[in-house]
């Protein structure tokens, strides 16, 4: 009887935890199957798009993807270090939105010299955000002289959509694109103490995008 109860409880925990996993889809576009080569001195810089009015790609996500890519042999220059070194050409107002503008920028000798001095070969633009798409349930908490507690149930859906575009700063061409969609539902159960069951949607998007991006590059 005890074993049956234990199995039931274990099953319940598994069902709850499986409900907290994110569904992640990655779309990849590359003109060729060949990896993107860079030599041991060359670096990659990952930048977030910040020109849209209603959202901006958060630095935490850029750092997370950067760490994933760095865990291989690829060297990644921190975003702010690059933006400061090349100021003011990658500010929200001035950052190139397309290859024609990048080509014009790289025609300026001082900018090209700075990019060369930093040994930046590839630039990865990350554009996207994580949003809460739906919420439901209700929870009420109260506190009194005898103690306090919460009762109820709340849930919310999160959706992370990020697109990565890889630019070659030497050949001034686009080398590939990646898009990650990750969604999941998080729960908050109020049984005296609030029990959060959070789905790491953004973290999943970062892991998937970072690992896929890492596989794009090959150090010669």
């Amino acid at each position: 009887m005890k074993i049956r109860t234990l199995n039931f409880q274990l099953g319940l925990v598994l069902i709850i935890l499986s409900g907290c996993s994110a569904t992640t889809t990655i779309d990849e576009y590359r003109p060729t199957d060949q990896p993107i080569f860079l030599n041991s001195d060359e670096k990659v810089v990952i930048l977030g798009r910040r020109d849209a009015g209603h959202y901006e790609t958060d630095r935490e996500f850029i750092e997370c993807v950067g760490k994933k890519v760095t865990s291989g042999e690829v060297k990644v220059l921190p975003e702010q270090q690059f933006i400061d070194a090349i100021y003011p050409w990658f500010e929200p107002r001035t950052a190139p939105k397309g290859l024609p503008r990048l080509k014009r920028l790289m025609q300026q000798r001082s900018i090209k010299a700075k990019v060369d001095a930093l040994s930046i070969r590839y630039l990865v633009w990350l554009d996207g955000s994580t949003e809460t798409t739906g919420q439901g349930g209700s929870m009420s908490c109260a506190i009194g002289p005898g103690g306090g507690g919460c009762l109820g149930f709340a849930q919310w859906d999160k959706l992370s959509v990020y697109e990565a575009t890889v630019w070659d700063l030497e050949e001034l061409v686009e080398k590939g694109r990646l898009r990650v969609d990750s969604e999941g539902t998080s729960y908050l159960i109020g049984a005296v103490a609030p029990i959060p069951l959070l789905t790491p949607v953004k973290n999943d998007a970062c892991n998937s995008l970072g690992n896929q991006l890492k596989s794009f590059f090959s150090v010669e």
Binding site: Y87, P88, E91, P92, R93, T94
Partner: peptide
């Protein structure tokens, strides 16, 4: 302020 610098340069 950084934007002011960018606007000026641009």
């Amino acid at each position: 302020l950084r934007d002011a610098g960018a606007k000026l340069m641009l």
